[in-house]
Design a protein around this nucleic acid. Structure first.
Lengths: 192, 192
DNA sequence: CGATTCTTTGAAAACAGTCAATCTGTGTGG
DNA sequence: CCACACAGATTGACTGTTTTCAAAGAATCG
């Protein structure tokens, strides 16, 4: 399981064997079954996850109990509820697995220690934060512009892999339309 | 003009007089008239702005020419098109002034130098990036959940100052509804 | 004042959500 | 291995919301 991470990190940052050892020594390998939660609303996000296999989602609910997916995260991606993780406040989000998954987990304190000790890791995380900023900004734009249909096709185009792996009602929940609407969009555009 | 920045930065980071001097020496003071652009689509965002007075907006347009406001930025806020600034690619956004404004401008290279020289500044920027992540994530959620009316009221609640300073059609453009719809929402809820 | 920007309104049409029912495929326990 | 439960997808009918277009009414600024 760690080997997936090792390949990932070696491609993204220049680390010594020692660094890698240190990172590994503070990591915990964990399996997450489909539909299992690793974070619930009200809990504090004390951990950061790296997905070596499978897929997890970050979601919130409104007062009516509707789910809104904020992020799909697949292999070779990091995941946590940034808000709770950064602020230390109780989370207003959930994280659960969409597929049977395998993740590496670091405690926040430990990870913080790693960042301090390993500049290359720090640098990598900084780059990733930058990218997530960009992605979020683009998502805001896509979300406020265009119709449900446009959002659907933009999703397929942007995340073909995710599209092929998740049920349609989750895509609906990601782009912010009802599953019925999504179903009809698909029917009306079989020819496209 | 610089004194506004000085008060801001002194409250947020511990800097020596030397640091401050250095920061100042690389900054340029600039006035931006209402409706004046400081970044256009296709240009590369080579500068980072700090607003000492007035208000600017970051916006994008779709192929039909509709405007979508991604951010309002007022006094004591930093602004740039992160995507273009980080990647160096041509921007797909515009930045212009909503009010006659005053800004401090740093060249990207110079600012990078400052970050290297002044750890406290680097730390501050890091914190701000974290906050913007949180804000963006929350915005995505608010945007995909809830009706136009809810979005409108949440906007007022969250940004009362901005609300009082910008024309309604811009708020419509920020929350992603037509100005007519916003107008009607307001009429139907005069009593609320 | 005249021009421009901003806001509102009405009417029609397009769009999207809700509710209830049905259909499909999958997987699990007996 | 089958039956049944369950998750997922679709459909129809209806309702409600939002957009669009066209027009006109305020407000603001030079």
């Amino acid at each position: 399981m760690f080997d997936v991470f090792e390949r990932y990190i070696s491609a993204k940052a220049i680390l010594t064997d020692q660094d890698l050892c240190l990172i590994r020594s503070l990591s915990v390998e964990r399996k997450v079954a489909k539909r299992e939660f690793v974070l619930r609303e009200g809990e504090i996000a004390r951990y950061i996850f790296f997905i070596t296999r499978g897929m997890l989602r970050l979601l919130r609910t409104d007062d009516k109990g509707n789910e809104y997916i904020l992020r799909f995260a697949t292999e070779n991606n990091w995941l946590s509820d940034r808000e709770s993780y950064i602020t230390g406040n109780p989370s207003n989000a959930y994280i659960d697995a969409i597929e049977d998954s395998q993740v590496l987990v670091w405690d926040k304190q430990d990870f913080h220690f790693l960042l301090k000790e390993i500049p290359a890791l720090k640098q990598l995380m900084k780059e990733l934060v930058g990218r997530s900023q960009i992605a979020n900004q683009n998502r805001v734009f896509t979300t406020i512009s265009g119709s449900a249909e446009e959002k659907y096709f933009r999703f397929i185009e942007k995340y073909p892999d995710t599209f092929n792996r998740v049920p349609l009602h989750m895509i609906a929940s990601y782009i912010g339309v009802s599953r019925e609407t999504l179903s009809r969009i698909r029917r009306h555009s079989v020819n496209k």
